[in-house]
C-alpha cells in the first residue's frame, strides 16, 4: 500500500514538471529575441509581407501571446503536432517522430544495456578485488573512458572500424578482421539501422550490429561512471556487519556474493543508471551526427540549425516526456529493489 502511494505521489509530481518544462520551452522559442516566423522564411521571402503574414498566421503568432500559449500547450497535450516547415517540408510531425524515434530508442536501448552489463559487472569485479592490480587497471580505464568526449571517441571508432585488418602469424594462420563483413553484412558502417525486419533473426542481428559502435560510444561515459559507483557500492556493502554474519552462518561463498553483496550493491546503482539515461538522450545528438543515424536527436539538431523553431519546440516537449517517463521508471525500479522505500520517500 505504501509503495503504491509513493508511486502515485511521484506520478502526480511529474505533471507540474512537464507543464513547467513545456512552458519554459514555449517561452524560449516564442518569446525569445528571435522571431520564429522570420526564421522560417528564406531571405527573399522575409521581405515579402504577404508570405510573412501567412507564416505568422499559420504559426498562430498573430494571436495574443496567452492565447497562443494555451493553443500550443493543448495541442501538445493531445499530440496534435502539426506539420514541419523546413525539414522534410510539409510532413506530418507525428509521422516524422514515429519514423525517427525508434532509431534513437534502439540506440539508447543498446547503450544502456552495454553500459549496465559491461560497466556494472566490471565495477563489481573491481570492488570484490579491491586494491589489487586488476582493480587499478579497471578503475583507471573507467576514469579515462569517462573523460573522453564521446563525439571524438565516435570519430576514432569509426576510423578503426572502417579499415580492414589482418592478424597473421607467419604462414600458420591469418585472421581477417573487417567490421563490415563480420557477422551480418552491412552495406556501410555508418548510417541508420534498418528496423523494419527486427522480427527476423537476420534483421535483428543486422540492426544490432549497425548500431553497436554508436551504442558503445554513447554508453561509454555512463559505463565508466557505473563502474566506479558499482565498485564503491560493493566496497561499502562488503564491510557491513550483515555480510559478516552471513559468513558466520556458513553461507557459501557463491551465495554470499550473489545473494547478499550484489543484491545490496544494486540499490545505490538504480538512480545512477536512470540518471545516465538522461545524458544518453542529450548525447545522442552528437553520436547520431557522427554516425549518420537519422534519429530524433539528429532531427532536433537539424531543425535547430536550419531554423525550424516550432519543430524544435515540439521535439523538446517529446524529450521532456521521455525524461519524466524514465524518472518514473526509476522510481518504480527503486520500490521493487529496496524494501525500505515508501516509508521515507526521498
Amino acid at each position: 500500500m505504501n509503495k503504491l502511494k509513493y508511486l502515485g505521489k511521484r506520478l502526480l509530481m511529474s505533471v507540474p514538471v512537464v507543464w513547467l518544462g513545456a512552458s519554459m520551452t514555449w517561452f524560449i522559442i516564442f518569446m525569445g529575441p528571435v522571431d520564429p516566423a522570420s526564421r522560417l522564411l528564406s531571405e527573399g521571402q522575409t521581405r515579402n509581407p504577404a508570405a510573412y503574414e501567412a507564416a505568422q498566421i499559420q504559426l498562430g503568432l498573430n494571436q495574443p501571446p496567452l492565447q497562443h500559449y494555451l493553443d500550443w500547450m493543448s495541442n501538445l497535450a493531445v499530440f496534435d503536432l502539426g506539420q514541419t516547415w523546413l525539414l522534410y517540408q510539409g510532413s506530418n510531425v507525428n509521422a516524422l517522430i514515429l519514423d525517427f524515434l525508434p532509431r534513437t530508442l534502439w540506440l539508447g536501448f543498446w547503450s544502456v544495456l552495454i553500459a549496465v552489463f559491461v560497466g556494472v559487472p566490471l565495477g563489481f569485479y573491481a570492488g570484490m578485488r579491491s586494491n589489487t592490480a586488476s582493480d587499478y587497471v579497471a578503475s583507471m580505464g573507467g576514469i579515462v573512458w569517462r573523460a573522453m568526449p564521446n563525439f571524438w571517441l565516435a570519430i576514432m571508432l569509426l576510423t578503426v572500424l572502417g579499415s580492414a585488418y589482418t592478424l597473421a602469424a607467419g604462414d600458420f594462420f591469418a585472421l581477417n578482421f573487417d567490421w563490415q563483413t563480420i557477422g551480418p553484412n552491412l552495406d556501410s558502417i555508418s548510417g541508420s539501422p534498418d528496423l523494419s525486419r527486427l522480427d527476423t533473426v537476420d534483421g535483428f542481428l543486422a540492426a544490432t550490429k549497425k548500431v553497436l559502435p554508436a551504442a558503445v560510444v554513447l554508453g561509454s561515459a555512463s559505463m565508466g561512471n557505473e563502474m566506479r559507483i558499482g565498485r564503491t557500492a560493493v566496497l561499502e556493502v562488503r564491510n557491513e556487519d550483515y555480510i559478516d554474519l552471513a559468513k558466520a552462518k556458513g553461507v557459501s561463498k557463491r551465495a554470499l556474493v550473489w545473494k547478499h553483496i550484489l543484491r545490496n550493491a544494486l540499490v545505490p546503482l538504480v538512480p545512477i543508471i536512470t540518471s545516465e539515461a538522461f545524458l544518453l538522450i542529450g548525447g545522442s545528438v552528437l553520436v547520431e551526427t557522427v554516425f549518420g543515424i537519422n534519429g530524433i536527436g539528429n532531427l532536433f539538431y537539424q531543425a535547430a540549425i536550419q531554423g525550424d523553431l516550432p519543430l524544435v519546440g515540439t521535439l523538446m516537449y517529446v524529450f521532456i516526456l521521455m525524461i519524466v517517463g524514465i524518472n518514473l521508471i526509476q522510481d518504480l525500479l527503486y520500490t521493487l529493489i529496496d524494501p525500505r522505500v515508501g516509508l521515507e520517500g526521498s
Partner: peptide, 11 residues
C-alpha cells in the same frame, strides 16, 4: 533537468 542539457544548449 527534464530538458536534456545539451539539447537545451543547442536550442
Amino acid at each position: 533537468m527534464a530538458m536534456p542539457q545539451l539539447l537545451l544548449l543547442i536550442m
